[in-house]
Computed example of a mutant assay.
Amino acid sequence: MDRDNSSIRAALLRLRDDTETQATALDGDLRSLFEASRSSNADDEHDPEGSTIAFERAQLSAVLDATRRRLAELDVAVQRVDAGTYGVCERCARPIPVERLVARPSAGTCVACASRH
């Protein structure tokens, strides 16, 4: 692996570590919310004061799911670096523009192929 691929791999692994830390924190928040709702006898479904506990759980679960998907995408990006295919579109085999990779480091397709999907 050349120096450029090593630095790309290191950057992806840092992003992955940050994302994993975020997922762990979100998972803890979700567990705390479940525990709080179990020990509470509040009638949150009929509370006129705003969002329900169920809504908060759903929202937090969605963010956690998105974070876990990002982790999986970053794992695949690291595998592409190791295979020497990072930065090459999985569909058309053209180079993925650097600007796209900066904006979305786990991108596996070029903009044209992504917009067709």
Rank of each mutant, 00 (worst) to 15 (best):
D4L: 14
S6M: 14
L13R: 08
R16S: 11
R16C: 02
R16M: 13
T19A: 03
E20I: 12
E20T: 12
T21K: 11
T21P: 00
Q22N: 12
Q22G: 02
A23T: 05
D27L: 07
S32T: 13
S32E: 14
L33F: 04
L33N: 07
F34R: 14
E35T: 13
A36G: 08
A36M: 09
S37W: 09
S40T: 08
N41W: 05
H46M: 10
H46G: 10
G50I: 04
S51P: 14
T52G: 06
T52K: 02
I53W: 03
A54D: 15
F55W: 10
E56W: 00
R57F: 08
A58R: 11
Q59V: 11
L60D: 09
L60P: 09
S61P: 00
A62K: 06
V63C: 01
V63F: 03
L64A: 00
T67I: 01
R68V: 09
L71N: 12
E73D: 15
L74M: 07
D75Y: 02
D75A: 06
D75Q: 08
V76S: 11
A77C: 06
A77W: 02
Q79S: 15
D82G: 00
D82F: 02
A83H: 05
G84Q: 05
Y86A: 05
E90P: 07
R91L: 14
R91A: 14
R94P: 00
P97N: 02
V98D: 15
R100G: 04
L101V: 03
A103S: 11
R104K: 13
P105M: 04
G108Y: 05
C110L: 03
C110N: 00
C113E: 08
A114M: 13
A114F: 08
R116E: 15
R116D: 14
R116G: 14
